[in-house]
Design a protein around this nucleic acid. Structure first.
Lengths: 152, 152
DNA sequence: GCGTTATAGTTACATATGAAACCATTTGCA
DNA sequence: TGCAAATGGTTTCATATGTAACTATAACGC
C-alpha cells in the first residue's frame, strides 16, 4: 500500500491514476500505428485486426474472428463487408452450414499483410527499445497477471 | 532481443502483440470504471475527466481543461455543455478576456465527485492488488519510461 | 416430421467522435 | 489607431460505434 494515503474523496490526480495512464499510453501507441496504415491503405484498426487473425487462421467464420479479436460481431461484420468489397478478404459459405462464412485473405490481402505486419512489428520494437531487458521481462509478467483477471 | 525471431512478414500474433495487449487491458479497466458511474450518474468518461480536473484546479478555462485531460477542445466543449446544463459545473466569463470561461464544480458537482472519486480509486486499488509490491514498483517505472517518449 | 429455440450474420437506429468551418474577441504591429 | 493574424469556444457535418431488431438456417425435443 502506498505511503502517502490520499483521502478517498480528495481530487483524483489523473496523471497518477493508473487506468488513465494506461488509457493515454495505449491510445498513443495504437493510434501511431493505425495512422500509419490508415494513411497508406485506408485500413481501419478493426479491419487490420481482422486481417491479422485471418492471416494466422485460414477459414475462420465471422463469429470466430470476433472471438479472436475481442471485437463484437457487428464490428466484424462491417469490417468484413469492406474487406470483401476491396478484395482483400475472400468469403465463401460453409458446406453443411449455410449460415457460416468461411473467410481468408486473398492474394491482394496477403500483399497488404506483408507490408503492414512489419510496420506494426517495427512500432512494437521501437516501443520496447525504450526499456531495458529487465523492464521488458517485468512488463510482460505484469501484463500477464493483470490480464488474467480483467476479462472476467 | 527475443530469441525466437519471427520473420517480419509472418502473421502477427495479436495476443502477444504489445500494443494490442495494452489496448485490451486499458479498455477493460476503463470501461469497468466508466460503467459504474455511467449507470449511477449518467456521466460519460469524458465528463468525469473534466470534473476530476476541475476538482483539482478551480477556475480553469476550457482550453486548459483540454490540455490537462488530453482531450480535444470539441470534446471538452460538449462535456461542459452537458455538465453546466445539469448544474454540476459552473461557468463564468473571465474578466479582461470575454472569450475565456472560468470553470469550477458547483456544490452538486462536488457531491458527485465525493462519490465517484472513491469509486475510481477503489477500482485502481483492486487492479493493483493483483500485483505484489515489486511488480507495482516496476509497473510505475515502466509507465514513466514509456510515457516519457510517446507524447512526442 | 414439426414447432420451438438457438445461432450466424446483417440492418436500422440512435449516440459518440473528430475535422473543419465558424463567430467573437483579443493581440501584434505598421 | 486600425487591420491582419491568433485564440477561445461552439456548431456543423461526416463517420464510427453499440444496441436492438431482424433474416436465414440449423439444432433440439417430442
Amino acid at each position: 500500500m502506498p505511503d502517502e494515503h490520499h483521502p478517498d474523496h480528495a481530487p483524483l490526480e489523473l496523471e497518477n491514476f493508473l487506468p488513465y495512464r494506461l488509457s493515454i499510453l495505449s491510445n498513443a501507441v495504437s493510434q501511431a500505428i493505425a495512422d500509419d496504415y490508415q494513411r497508406r491503405f485506408d485500413l481501419s484498426m478493426t479491419e487490420w485486426r481482422v486481417m491479422a487473425v485471418l492471416a494466422r487462421f485460414e477459414g475462420l467464420s465471422a463469429r470466430e474472428v470476433a472471438e479472436r479479436t475481442l471485437m463484437d460481431k457487428v464490428a466484424v461484420s462491417r469490417a468484413l463487408a469492406k474487406l470483401v468489397e476491396t478484395g482483400w478478404v475472400t468469403r465463401a459459405i460453409h458446406d453443411g452450414d449455410k449460415r457460416r462464412s468461411v473467410l481468408g485473405l486473398s492474394e491482394a490481402g496477403w500483399a497488404i499483410h506483408e507490408v503492414v505486419a512489419p510496420m506494426a512489428r517495427e512500432h512494437e520494437r521501437n516501443l520496447l527499445s525504450k526499456l531495458d531487458d529487465e523492464e521488458r521481462t517485468w512488463l510482460l509478467r505484469i501484463l500477464d497477471k493483470l490480464q488474467a483477471i480483467e476479462p472476467k
